[in-house]
Simulated scan of single mutants.
Amino acid sequence: MPVLWLDIPQMLIDAGVVSNLYAARTTSNYALMWSQGAQLDLSKSSTNLHRARLRKIGIDIKKPYQGELYSLEDSRSIIAQRNSIVS
């Protein structure tokens, strides 16, 4: 089942992978770029850092993207639905 892109920061924090929201959001942006077909330079240490963080929650940005994430638009729609249920 795909993961909501907007849920990734909280997943990283909950799993103890990162300790702050800034680091979590930065790492989630790598997942978003990967899902949109960006060529990530895996020879860079920063890319490998974010890859390692994402792998801890089951997302490997080295592998070809195969629908592991909902799109940004779908994520927003799902979040809006969640919020309407809570309200």
Rank of each mutant, 00 (worst) to 15 (best):
Q81G: 15
S77G: 08
K44D: 11
L72D: 07
I59S: 00
A24Q: 00
Q10V: 15
M11P: 03
A24N: 01
T27D: 02
G58A: 07
L54P: 00
L12N: 00
I57E: 00
H50F: 14
A23R: 06
I61F: 04
L69Q: 01
A24R: 01
L12A: 02
L72V: 13
K62I: 09
D41G: 08
R82L: 13
L40Q: 02
Q10F: 14
L6H: 04
T27W: 01
Y65R: 05
L32A: 10
L32S: 06
D74C: 08
A23T: 09
R53F: 05
S71W: 04
E68G: 08
R82C: 09
Q39H: 15
L69R: 01
I8T: 01
L6S: 09
Y65I: 04
I78Y: 02
Y22D: 08
L32T: 07
S75I: 04
R76K: 15
K44W: 14
R82W: 13
A15Y: 11
M1I: 13
I61N: 00
R53V: 01
I57S: 03
H50M: 04
W34Q: 00
T26V: 14
R51Y: 03
R51E: 05
K62D: 08
T27V: 11
Y65Q: 01
M33S: 11
K56Y: 04
S87Q: 14
K56H: 06
Y30V: 04
D74G: 04
A52N: 12
R51L: 07
L21E: 14
S75P: 02
V17H: 02
N48S: 07
T26Y: 11
G58Q: 04
M1H: 10
Y30I: 05
D41Q: 11
S87K: 15
L4T: 02
S71T: 14
E73M: 11
L49S: 07
L69F: 04
D14P: 02
Y70I: 03
L21D: 12
S28N: 04
H50C: 05
P2N: 09
A31W: 00
G37C: 04
I57H: 01
Y65E: 02
G37M: 05
P2L: 03
P9L: 03
D41I: 09
A23N: 11
M33W: 12
L32G: 05
D60M: 08
A24H: 02
Q10E: 14
S43T: 15
I8V: 05
T26R: 10
S77E: 11
A23S: 13
R76I: 07
Q81H: 14
R25V: 06
S43V: 13
L4R: 05
V86R: 15
Q81R: 15
R53E: 03
A23Q: 13
S28L: 04
N83D: 12
W34F: 05
R76Y: 06
S46T: 09
I61D: 00
S28R: 02
Y30M: 08
D60H: 04
V17Y: 02
K56V: 03
P64N: 06
I59P: 00
K44N: 12
S87L: 13
D41S: 10
R55E: 08
S45K: 14
A38N: 10
G67R: 03
T26K: 14
S28P: 03
A38K: 15
L4F: 06
I13R: 08
P64D: 07
M11E: 11
S87D: 11
S46P: 05
I61M: 03
D41L: 08
K62M: 12
S43A: 13
S71A: 12
S75N: 07
T47N: 08
L72N: 10
R55T: 09
L54E: 01
